[in-house]
Amino acid sequence: MNLIKMTGLELMQMGANLPGNMGDRGIASVIPMKITEAEQGRVSFTARADERHTNPMGAIHGGFAATVLDAATGCAVHTLLPAGIGFGTVDLNVKMVRPVPINEELFAVGEVIDRTRTSAISQAMLKDGDGKIYAHATATCRILGRA
């Protein structure tokens, strides 16, 4: 399998079918998150904060939510890109709504809300199973290459 020849959507769909946390590679080895669905302009993740993600006061560090939301917004953009074209997050704005719970499965859905030839804007929310929002983010991504 040649990853460079796969579209962004194909890569994200492959990630949804890997065992564990996106194959337990890279950032997913530190932040337990998993792609569960991918379609054009939209991805879904599950994530679970644990003791490794606490700050000195014992609460979940805000970087946990920011990292999951960065992944969700970026991966949503990636689903729109052809093979061999990448992206980079230029701007990530995260609003923390309430403290992230420890050892509870959370869900993040990222979706593209605008796309041009050179950039895309996406958003994502981190929620629990009841739909309670813990954090919201918007991101601007630069498309790298000729998309």
Rank of each mutant, 00 (worst) to 15 (best):
L80D: 01
H78D: 03
D70A: 11
L69W: 01
L106V: 06
H136N: 11
E104P: 01
I31M: 06
L80V: 01
I133P: 10
T73W: 06
I133K: 14
H53G: 12
G74M: 09
Q40L: 08
I133L: 15
M33P: 01
R117V: 09
P19H: 13
G86Y: 04
P32Y: 04
Q13T: 04
T46V: 14
G129I: 02
S122E: 05
I60R: 07
P82Y: 08
P99F: 09
L3T: 09
T73I: 06
L126C: 07
P32I: 00
G62K: 09
A71D: 09
M96H: 15
P82S: 14
K132P: 02
R146T: 13
D50Y: 06
L126F: 03
V68A: 04
V109M: 05
V77T: 12
A59Q: 12
G62A: 13
R117C: 00
L18R: 12
K34T: 11
I102Y: 00
D91F: 04
Y134R: 07
C141R: 02
N17V: 01
M22R: 03
S44L: 04
P101M: 05
I121H: 14
A83R: 05
A47G: 07
E51F: 07
E37N: 13
A108L: 03
A108Y: 03
G8C: 10
S29H: 04
Q123H: 07
D50N: 15
G15Y: 15
M1G: 13
A16E: 08
F64N: 00
A135D: 10
N2L: 09
A139V: 08
I4S: 15
F107H: 10
N2D: 10
E51R: 09
T79N: 05
E51W: 05
T140D: 02
Q123E: 14
L81Y: 09
I31V: 15
M57A: 11
S44Y: 00
R25Q: 14
I60N: 11
G131R: 14
K132Q: 13
N103S: 11
A139Q: 12
L81W: 08
M14S: 07
G26P: 07
L11N: 06
L9F: 07
G8L: 12
N93D: 13
L69F: 03
C141G: 02
L92V: 12
K5E: 15
P56F: 14
A139K: 04
V109R: 09
P19I: 02
T140P: 04
A120M: 06
A135I: 14
F87D: 01
